[in-house]
């Protein structure tokens, strides 16, 4: 893999992002109604004042013009201002990004730690009852509605057992790590469930393919212990197909975060998204959707590049 390949992949992402922004902008701005309609009911805000605001926000321009104005300032690093709070979109998003990163980071880490051994065990004990059980489990994992699981967890761990706080980010005045983790553990587990299910399947199938290959048989013949063989030779190659699903998982995480944050009152960008939808806060919605899409595009590039790096057989000119 070369640097020029990386650059080319990144360059290819630019028209993609432009296309995404056109579609999103069109959907958001062509919908009936608008963010300033909330002032229509307010007798103390005169029609002239609304017109003034419309001009101030550039909402009086034709949509294509609005789009280019938006694009221009976006490229200059100005994401616009929230119509509800008047604060810069970027700072509104950054304020909420931390909790979401904590939540999804822990969920991903948790998924990695659990899925890896599950996949490996499944593959090495192929056809055993354990393998069948784990396969069924992963099927169940991708078939379980996130919101339902979230409700069941709340019912069990908060309502019935009283072990964990039902929702929220932290107890007020208690910013301790333990308190944070107590709030984090339930949403993170729920969010990781579907990822564990999908990853363990990919790692399993990757492992099965690799274990059948000649060089592994050779390694066996050389008398290494089973664990050593698995870890040293197989896992690295088994990871290759799994890496390609990073991008899909990124989308799963974003979607899961919207639901999980709603159910667990987690103050992340998923909640911000729901609030912005309620208030038709176009700049925030546009910013969040673009950020999410950018994340997916970036994850795709990383997946391709990692794929190339992990698999020495692949050469990109």
């Amino acid at each position: 893999m070369s640097l020029s390949y990386l650059l080319r992949r990144l360059g290819g992402a630019i028209p993609l992002l432009l296309g995404i922004s056109v579609i999103l902008f069109a959907i958001i701005h062509l919908a009936p109604g608008g963010p300033l309609d909330m002032y229509l009911e307010n007798p103390s805000v005169s029609p002239e004042a609304i017109e003034q605001m419309r001009t101030a926000y550039g909402l009086d321009q034709p949509v294509p013009v609005q789009y280019f104005l938006w694009l221009k300032s976006m490229l200059a690093g100005d994401w616009g201002y929230s119509i509800r709070t008047g604060k810069p979109v970027l700072s509104e998003i950054l304020n909420r990004l931390g909790p979401t990163l904590q939540l999804s980071g822990l969920a991903l880490g948790f998924a990695f730690i659990v899925a890896m051994p599950l996949g490996v065990i499944s593959a090495t004990r192929r056809g055993s009852k354990l393998d069948t059980g784990l396969t069924l489990f992963s099927f169940a994992g991708i078939s379980t509605p996130v919101f339902w699981m979230a409700l069941l967890f709340q019912l069990l761990f908060s309502v019935q057992l009283g072990w964990l706080p039902s929702a929220g980010y932290q107890s007020v005045g208690d910013g301790s790590l333990v308190d944070r983790l107590r709030h984090l553990v339930m949403p993170a587990t729920v969010l990781s469930f579907a990822i564990i299910a999908s990853w363990s399947r990919y790692i399993r199938s990757g492992m099965v393919d690799v274990l059948n290959q000649d060089y592994i048989r050779t390694a066996y013949a050389k008398g290494r212990t089973e664990i050593g063989v698995v870890v040293l030779h197989a896992l690295r190659n088994a990871m290759i197909p799994a890496v390609t699903v990073i991008a899909v998982d990124f989308a799963t995480i974003i979607s899961g975060a919207v639901i999980t944050e709603t159910v667990f009152a987690w103050p992340g960008i998923g909640r911000l998204f729901m609030e912005a939808m309620d208030g038709r806060d176009y700049p925030i919605l546009m910013g969040l959707m673009m950020l999410g899409s950018f994340g997916i595009v970036l994850a795709n590039v990383i997946a391709d590049v990692t794929y190339a790096a992990l698999d020495p057989r692949i050469r990109y000119g």
Partner: peptide
Amino acid sequence: IVFKMITDSNTLMTQLRSGE
């Protein structure tokens, strides 16, 4: 006085019950 913003009515009820 701590004003907690809890838009989800179920969470609100749970926190009332738990004394939060």
